[in-house]
Design a protein around this nucleic acid. Sequence first.
DNA 1: TACTCGATCGGA
DNA 2: CCGATCGAGTAA
Length: 188
Amino acid sequence: MGRLIQAKELQGKNTVAFARRLLGCALVRTLADGRQERHLIAETEAYNGWEDRASHASRGRTPRNAPMFAAGGIWYVYLCYGVHEMLNLVTGPEGFPAAVLIRGVTGITGPGRLTKALGIDRQLNGAPVAPASGLHLEESVTVPARWIQRTPRIGVDYAGPEWAGKLWRFRVDAERLLKLAAEKSARG
DNA sequence: TACTCGATCGGA
DNA sequence: CCGATCGAGTAA
């Protein structure tokens, strides 16, 4: 169990830094029977501001992307390619559209497979990042900087080279995360 | 109302 | 490499 990540911490304009800091945090799914499943976040992407051509917010506010314009601390879940639910954490102050796509956790690679495995869909769209919603975040392990990989975001070539080229995807090897978690639990 | 196209994935 | 699958966004 780690410290709960609160909405207040998600309301700055440092979206990219936050996407990086999310690595090693726990995504906690509360099931219907009250039990909790914990997954360490291994891969994220930042979508930051109106100018970001890869972001849904780049052409202004619409019914779909409205959650991105709210104050940070809620989930933004949408259907991609008519097939996959994508899970995003809304960040930023009210009115500044930003979010972090959760692309992978330990044991599950890919944003579509992640939501399928955790039973996440658009019912969670707009819900607060809190245990009562059934999905929240906790601090867990601290990932050494040298283990963090930065790359361009995936599947956003349509945004053009300037925006598709931003190193706004962050990744850490899942095995290393699990090792850190094991060391932490051995320490007590 | 008629298009077009995706922040993906699995199978050929 | 390609098709699935559907809703948002745009233009008319």
